[in-house]
């Protein structure tokens, strides 16, 4: 499928490129559709293509046998992939779709050409890497200094901010993740997440349903999220 330059403007970072660079990228890009639970790339693989997420949700994670840590949940407009293009090393993490997903893709070969021909694209690529880096610094901070309740509160608030919809009684967003995946996000066991969710629900801070999560008291949740217990 051909890609129109307008699609690139859906991504915050690509929108900043010159029209000439945008056209040049669009010519070399492909449009791809994925169903849910499809692996986009694996930790340990050679450098992956770059995906500009147009719709759908993806999880980025590292896994070693039974242990998994979810690193990020990009939203439409975000980019992922090509993390190890500059070093030529293996992909530092895996990406799997959580829902049906569409994305503009740029192969590693094309990325290399774009970087050589368009200096402004190099800057964009640097920005993508440093943005992700910033996220990981925060994640490491949270994993090191906050307890499970505070980390779960942080995850819920971040999702409410980026994808929540104001409704009567609070802010609601798609549940998207299984109990196990929530555990993989906050770095704990499934049972602990289950208990933590239950406590937040009993205290009237959230409502949990099969499909969605309602934040009822974001001020109280924010207070929990900001606690550094360690």
């Amino acid at each position: 499928m051909t890609v129109h330059a307008e699609l690139l403007a859906k991504s915050r970072v690509f929108a900043a490129l010159s029209p000439r660079t945008q056209r040049s990228i669009a010519e070399k890009a492909a449009l791809a559709e994925f169903s849910e639970h499809v692996d986009l790339y694996h930790q340990g693989d050679p450098p992956a293509p770059l995906f500009i997420l147009l719709s759908g949700r993806v999880k980025l994670y590292r896994q070693s046998k039974e242990n998994c840590q979810i690193l990020a949940l990009p939203v439409p407009g975000d980019c992922l992939g090509a993390e190890s293009l500059s070093t030529g090393t293996a992909s530092p993490y895996s990406a799997t779709t959580l829902t049906p997903t569409t994305a503009v893709t740029l192969s590693p070969e094309v990325l290399q050409i774009l970087m050589d021909e368009h200096p402004d694209f190099q800057e964009i690529f640097l920005r993508l890497i440093t943005d992700r880096l910033k996220q990981f610094v925060t994640l490491v901070h949270d994993l090191a200094f906050r307890d499970v309740t505070s980390r779960l509160a942080t995850v819920l608030l971040a999702r409410a901010d980026s994808e929540g919809q104001a409704v009567e009684g609070g802010v609601v967003f798609d549940r998207l993740l299984s109990q196990q995946e929530f555990a993989d996000m906050v770095g704990t066991a499934r049972e602990v997440v289950y208990r933590t969710f239950k406590r937040l629900e009993d205290d009237g801070l959230i409502n949990l349903s099969r499909q969605s999560i309602l934040i009822r008291d974001s001020a109280a949740l924010r207070a929990i999220a900001q606690q550094e217990t360690r």
Binding site: R62, S64, N67, Q69, L71, I129, L133, F136, V140, D184
Partner: peptide, 22 residues
């Protein structure tokens, strides 16, 4: 710079896994 930050990204991804899942 890209090289430097890509290396750092790999390192921090790994630190996150070790802290969160190990």
């Amino acid at each position: 710079l890209l090289h430097i930050y890509s290396q750092r990204l790999e390192h921090l991804a790994r630190v996150s896994e070790v802290l969160g899942a190990w």
